[in-house]
Design a protein around this nucleic acid. Structure first.
Length: 612
DNA sequence: TTCATTACGTA
DNA sequence: CGTACGTAATGAAA
């Protein structure tokens, strides 16, 4: 046994490194006398589904002592790890989802065994304070949390140790995990300290979890959700590889064509805004729109976005837009998916089940599904339901506006939803007078719709005008009418703002505490709505899991859940799943509707009457 | 290599 | 006083 000593705020921490099977009894004693343990793994990378992936080290620890097991060296150590994972009553891990995949894949300890034992400091940290570092919050990464809650100096050392290791081996930071020698003392110390950090962090964070969040059961609720999302990550999504490859060649040809066109106008690099600004200036184009001022550039520079380029009306502008788009779509959607393929032809997104300030989920990596273009099935067409199954999308209708109506108890808005009236028409009528006879849609419905959404997002008349192409006069009129008509919403928004200004926080319907910057108190309404909506979707996922639907779930996207259902039972399962997802929020039904496609997800969007 | 900035895709 | 994200790319700073 090799022993490494570390001083944490003057307090000694011992890292025991198991080197031979003879060292294992001491490890077993340690596990038996510590029913609650910090747990972490070191692996060759992050892509746990990829063929070459393996676990290198497994680490267990309490506040002052840790054991490091060289799992890479063979079954003696993976067996001991598996034993410890079952023996421990609770395992504290930071982002335990990842370690669950590792244990399942590398030490034959199924997700289902580990999940009920995991206490995830990332989830706890989010309940305490969900803000990222850039929002002046603690952040959610382990190193950020150590810096904020434990010891800034130690956090610097952790960060520095990885950088130094990468430098020593002359590789990029991301490559160090597979290249570093297993018994490198710096690596072992870093690895051994991780479960100690997690253990300490847990005990610091738990007392900070808001009482109301505890009372509403959010801690176990989030763990349960994380477990379900880990299962959907494991399931992955079947990829139509030939479809993806066909789109890649198509887009590459397209990109080349438009880059050549741009080159004839003297632009070598369509992605260089500086080149474009120079060229258009030479061509006599008067640029006006500027980017936002920054400390380094107080006046901003000329903007070169789609808005500007399409208003120029020059063939070069069109070539630039098309070339950039073709390149980015190819790389971001199709090549990413191909790169993420496992040996079974499936791709696995990485789900952060509780990520945004409002706790919204994100999906990153090989399936950045939250940003797939939504107009048609072009990108989504590469994702397939399993053999013999069809793609189904079930989404909540008007979830955020319904949450706004229900949470505020506004009688006008509630009545509109209960009678299934068109809320956008209603706002238009309030602002611009009654519907002309014989029409279904108010001529100013677009202004009504823009106002409803913009107010929900915390915006004012200027935002309605800019984003929805409404004249400033009409936008002012519509926003004024909104607040005058839906007085309950007004009272609710004011109440939230007062709470935010007074305490710095608001609480959502599920007992979640959300920090609100005092100088942006207008955001409080949106935080409440967005976060409550997220929890309604999360509740739907949990209920679906209870009913046995998890193996059919492919993706969860804010207010939509995508399934792969057996073809013969698709109609029945879609109906049942939609009824499971639906819930009554403060007396108002949030309805869910399903659409059944063919095998590809894209086919759902290409349905004739698709609402997408 | 890393960071800030710009742009663009979604709910 | 529109919210919340992730990804790709440039160009400068380290």
């Amino acid at each position: 046994m090799k022993v490494i000593e570390y001083a944490l705020k003057g307090e000694p921490v011992t890292v025991n490194v198991v080197e031979t099977p003879e060292d294992l009894p001491a490890f077993r004693d340690f596990v038996e006398s510590n029913p609650v343990l910090g747990f972490d793994t070191e692996t060759t990378g992050l892509e746990w589904w990829s063929p070459g992936f393996h676990c290198r080290l497994a680490q267990f620890g309490n506040a002052t002592e840790a054991f490091v097991l060289p799992v890479e060296l063979g079954p003696d150590y993976s067996d001991a790890t598996r034993w410890a994972l079952r023996k421990a009553h609770r395992l504290i891990a930071h982002n335990g989802t990842f370690d669950m995949h590792v244990s399942e894949r590398c030490v034959d300890s199924p997700l289902e065994v580990l999940a009920p034992r995991i206490l995830d400091t990332k989830l706890l940290a989010h309940l305490v304070d969900p803000r990222a570092v850039r929002e002046a919050g603690p952040g959610l990464k382990l190193e950020e949390l150590i810096k904020f809650y434990v010891d800034p100096k130690a956090a610097e050392e952790v960060k520095g140790s990885i950088a130094a290791l990468a430098k020593k081996y002359k590789v990029k930071k991301e490559e160090i995990w597979s290249k570093v020698e297993l018994f490198d003392p710096d690596y072992l110390l870093y690895a051994g300290m991780d479960p100690v950090w997690a253990y300490r962090l847990f005990h610091i964070l738990l007392p900070k979890v808001p009482a109301r969040s505890l009372k509403y059961g959010l801690v176990s609720w989030e763990h349960r959700l994380a477990h379900i999302m880990a299962k959907t990550e494991r399931t992955g999504y079947l990829l139509d590889e030939s479809y993806a490859r066909a789109r890649i060649s198509e887009l590459r040809a397209d990109q080349q064509k438009w880059e050549t066109a741009a080159a004839t106008h003297g632009v070598e690099n369509v992605n260089s805004n500086q080149q474009l600004i120079d060229t258009f200036t030479d061509l006599g184009v008067k640029l006006k729109k500027r980017t936002k001022p920054t400390p380094n550039n107080p006046h901003g520079q000329f903007a070169m976005d789609d808005d500007v380029l399409s208003s120029i009306g020059h063939p070069l502008a069109e070539a630039v837009v098309r070339a950039k788009k073709a390149g980015k779509w190819r790389k971001t959607w199709f090549e990413r998916a191909i790169k993420g393929l496992d040996e079974n032809g499936r791709v696995h997104g990485s789900v952060n089940s509780c990520q945004a300030r409002t706790a919204r989920m994100t999906v990153t990596g090989a399936i950045p599904a939250l940003t797939f273009p939504a107009g048609d099935g072009y990108v989504r067409g590469m994702f397939l339901a399993d053999k013999g199954e069809v793609s189904v999308s079930i989404d909540f209708s008007n979830m955020e506006l319904r949450v706004m109506a229900a949470a505020s108890g506004d009688p006008v808005m509630l009545e509109a939803f209960r009678k299934n009236e068109d809320l956008h028409n209603l706002t238009a009528i309030a602002a611009f007078g009654p519907m002309p006879p014989g029409v279904e849609k108010h001529p100013m419905r677009k202004a009504g719709k823009g106002t409803n959404f913009t107010v929900c997002f915390g915006g004012g008349w200027k935002a309605v005008s800019d984003q929805w192409g409404i004249s400033p006069e009409d936008a002012k009129k519509a926003v004024k009418a909104f607040w005058g008509t839906y007085t309950g919403v007004k009272r609710f928004a004011d109440k939230l703002q007062r709470e935010a200004r007074r305490t710095g926080y608001i609480y959502t319907a599920t007992g979640r505490r959300l920090p609100v910057d005092r100088d942006r108190a207008y955001a409080a309404l949106n935080y409440y709505i967005q976060s409550s909506a997220r929890d309604i979707t999360a509740r739907a996922v949990i209920e679906l899991d209870r009913a046995g639907y998890t193996p059919w779930i492919r993706l969860v996207i804010h207010d939509e859940i995508v399934f792969s259902f057996p073809r013969e039972r698709a109609a029945e399962l879609t109906e049942k799943a939609a009824r499971i997802m639906e819930m009554t929020f403060k007396g108002l039904l949030i309805p869910a509707d399903g659409e059944i496609g063919e095998q590809s997800w894209g086919s759902v969007l290409d349905l004739e009457n698709s609402k997408h």
